[in-house]
């Protein structure tokens, strides 16, 4: 979810879910999207951090519709997350939820989003004067891990709906802690399933990949050519992945060129 900078000038304060209004460990606002707020809080114990996703009610919607939508979206996201987790797809676990109140508590994922790490890496390489195209094992490795993780998710019948490098995290792996894990090291964890759906349609999967491809193009243009590594690893990740890649070619050509009829 993007951090929405336009809201910093907003006149209305950040709405808090009721549970965060009871004074305990103060929650920290992490991100504010169009749909939901993300806080860092704790679950059950002060030592157990969690991410709290809160969908405040929207004043423009009819209250009945608003509640219906909020409940549906919280449950839908929780369902997708638990399904993924059960099937071994690396996502945060669901701790607790209250769909009527519009919140969900999920496992806190340590680490950083791929978007930031990747840009740090690319700028460091540029500073070191390493020309593009020179073999970069770490970068290739990262791309492959991304492809595998996305493939794994598609393989269990889930489509993310908003695949960008801000929704992929690199979680430090304990065993590598001694070496001070490298910038691009870590386990890929997929986050923010607010727009996800359960689908096995190749079209939906291809669109998922297309969104990620475009995200690479616009945010990390220097790494754009390496997207083929993502797709390469994706192809090997589940049966039928190659058909998705063929669909991707179609989706690319279409892009936003849906015809209009006046």
């Amino acid at each position: 979810m993007e951090v929405d900078t336009s809201l910093s000038q907003s006149s209305s304060p950040v709405p808090l879910p009721l549970i965060l209004q009871r004074p305990s460990v103060p929650a920290i606002l992490i991100a504010q999207g169009a749909e939901a707020l993300l806080f860092r809080s704790t679950y059950l114990l002060p030592s157990l951090p969690c991410a709290l996703k809160y969908r405040p009610s929207k004043p423009y919607r009819h209250p009945t519709l608003d509640l219906r939508l909020t409940k549906h979206r919280i449950l839908s996201e929780a369902r997708v997350l638990t399904k993924c987790r059960r099937e071994g797809v690396p996502v945060p676990g669901v701790y607790a939820l209250d769909e009527g109140a519009g919140w969900m508590m999920i496992e806190w994922v340590d680490g950083e989003v791929v978007r930031i790490r990747l840009n740090e890496w690319l700028s460091r390489r540029a500073q070191e004067g390493v020309p593009q195209g020179v073999e970069d094992g770490k970068l290739v490795g990262l791309m492959r891990r991304i492809g595998s993780a996305v493939g794994r998710m598609h393989g269990v019948g889930v489509v993310h709906g908003d695949l960008t490098t801000s929704n992929l995290m690199l979680r430090p792996v304990p065993a590598e802690g001694v070496n001070g894990g490298g910038m691009l090291d870590g386990e890929i964890v997929l986050i923010d399933f607010g727009l996800a759906s359960q689908s096995t349609q190749d079209e939906d999967r291809a669109v998922d990949l297309y969104v990620l491809e475009r995200a690479f193009g616009s945010t990390h243009s220097k790494a754009e050519s390496l997207f083929t590594e993502v797709l390469g690893a994706y192809e090997k990740s589940f049966k039928g992945a190659n058909i998705v890649l063929k669909k991707l070619e179609e989706v690319r050509m279409r892009g936003r060129k849906r015809s209009m009829l006046g």
């Binding site: 449950l75 929780a78 369902r79 997350l81 638990t82 399904k83 987790r85 059960r86 676990g93 669901v94 701790y95 607790a96 939820l97 769909e99 969900m104 496992e107 792996v173 304990p174 065993a175 590598e176 359960q198």
Partner: peptide, 29 residues
Amino acid sequence: VYGSDRTSQDSKELEMLILGSMALRGATN
């Protein structure tokens, strides 16, 4: 890469799945 202590990882994972199951309570498909 995960350490030799697979059992504690496994039981932690089991716990996570149980918590998710309790949170959804029947609203699964």
